[in-house]
Simulated assay, not measured.
Amino acid sequence: MPTISQSSEELLLTQISSEVVSLSPQIDQIKLRMRLAGILSLYDVRPAQLPGAHPDIQDKVRLFLAAKKLEGLSPLTLEGYQLELRIFAEKVRKPVTDITTADIRVFLGDFPDLKTSSISKKLSVLKSFFSWLTEEEIIPRDPTRKIKPPKKEQRMPKALTIEELEMIREACQTYRERALIEVLYATGCRLSEVQALNRDDINWQTASARVIGKGNKEREVFFSFKAMYHLRKYLMNRLDREPALFITERQPYRRLSKRGIQREIHIIADRAGIQKSVHPHTLRHTFATLTLNNGADISTVQALLGHEDPATTQVYAQISDEHKKEQYKKYHVQ
């Protein structure tokens, strides 16, 4: 069993190596690790400890995140893993070899107010973590193996109607507001994808852009004529040199945060008098629903949304089928 210092030294070595390789992929990893190991051998390396968490689990979490970064997981995914595992480490104060299935069940049951989807997310992260520990032979067996994910809530996504979408558009008061609404709706992008866009990402000739979605996967999305018109209008009225597509309205100008975009959409929806809850993902739902209702092929919509699992897109097809049923009842001659 390695000591805390040895484990920490190995962890630091892995983290530094991964950072250097990400900046310069051509570098010889073996030589790099050997030179770093020689330098680190002169020091007693100990990690900073989180309050209340066992040092062993903290070490293993750091190793896990470093390994996943080398596998190419996106910074957003790694950030999510880190947050969930930090909460777990502070609640379950044990070395990883002592953590049982019962410990994990008790931990997951300690969030009675969370939605089923949030519990599933926590379990998914833990399964990934303990599965990796088992594969690396750090622990003899996976304590999450016997835990089944909770049944998913069968809720239909709440899309805007055509009338509500027009009300949202009419409620916009600034160039940025209108451009933001049109881009979110026209592309069907996730909040994080739009937030990360830069001016140079927009191909004005093809009215498209390439975005990085879940799993660090790249896909092409498209802009409608309205989206291109209002986006161009917004950018032409900006005097800054900030590369981000959407920025703050006050100096110092910087990329608009995800929270900032959410707040903007909420303000516009309130101004429009929309009764239902409206957030950036609502416009993604609206894009999918209205596109399918207008006759688009489900596999095309799946590709445009960046869904890996066709079943995820199928939810919108069910809404489309409901629309067809309504049309049948309305127009069918008995």
Rank of each mutant, 00 (worst) to 15 (best):
S257P: 04
L197E: 05
P157I: 12
I139H: 02
E166M: 01
P140I: 01
Q262A: 06
A209L: 05
R190L: 12
T174W: 06
P140R: 09
K151E: 10
T206C: 09
A179Q: 06
T174R: 03
S224F: 03
E193M: 09
E164D: 06
K226I: 00
F225W: 04
P150R: 10
Y229P: 00
E220R: 13
R145W: 07
R169P: 01
G213P: 00
P243Q: 02
P143F: 01
Y253V: 03
R155M: 11
T248P: 04
A171E: 09
K233C: 09
D240Y: 04
E166P: 00
R178D: 03
T206D: 15
C189K: 00
G213A: 07
L256Y: 07
D142P: 00
N216P: 03
Q154C: 02
E193Q: 04
K214M: 03
I162Q: 15
N216G: 09
H230A: 05
Q262M: 07
R176H: 04
K226T: 01
A209W: 00
K226G: 03
R190K: 15
L239E: 15
T206S: 15
C189S: 12
I147C: 08
P149H: 08
Y234V: 01
P243V: 01
E249M: 10
M236Y: 09
A186C: 01
R169V: 01
K258A: 04
M167W: 11
V221A: 13
R238Y: 06
F222L: 07
A159R: 10
E193T: 05
M167K: 14
A207N: 14
Y175A: 09
G215Q: 08
E249D: 15
L133A: 11
T134H: 06
E242Q: 13
R219A: 13
L180W: 09
K258T: 09
I181S: 14
R141D: 15
M228S: 08
T161R: 10
E170R: 12
I139P: 00
A186K: 04
K151C: 05
E242D: 12
Y175K: 13
L245S: 10
R190D: 12
Y185M: 11
L231P: 00
I261Q: 06
L160F: 02
W132G: 02
G188N: 07
K217V: 02
E137Q: 11
M236K: 13
I247W: 06
Q205S: 14
R250C: 05
L184N: 06
Q154Y: 10
L256A: 07
T174Y: 08
P243W: 01
V221K: 08
E170A: 14
Y185G: 04
T206E: 15
R263L: 15
R176G: 08
R241K: 14
I162E: 15
E193R: 01
P252Y: 08
D142T: 00
R141F: 13
A207R: 14
I168R: 03
F222S: 09
Q154L: 07
R141H: 10
L165A: 11
Q173S: 12
E153W: 08
N198D: 15
R176M: 07
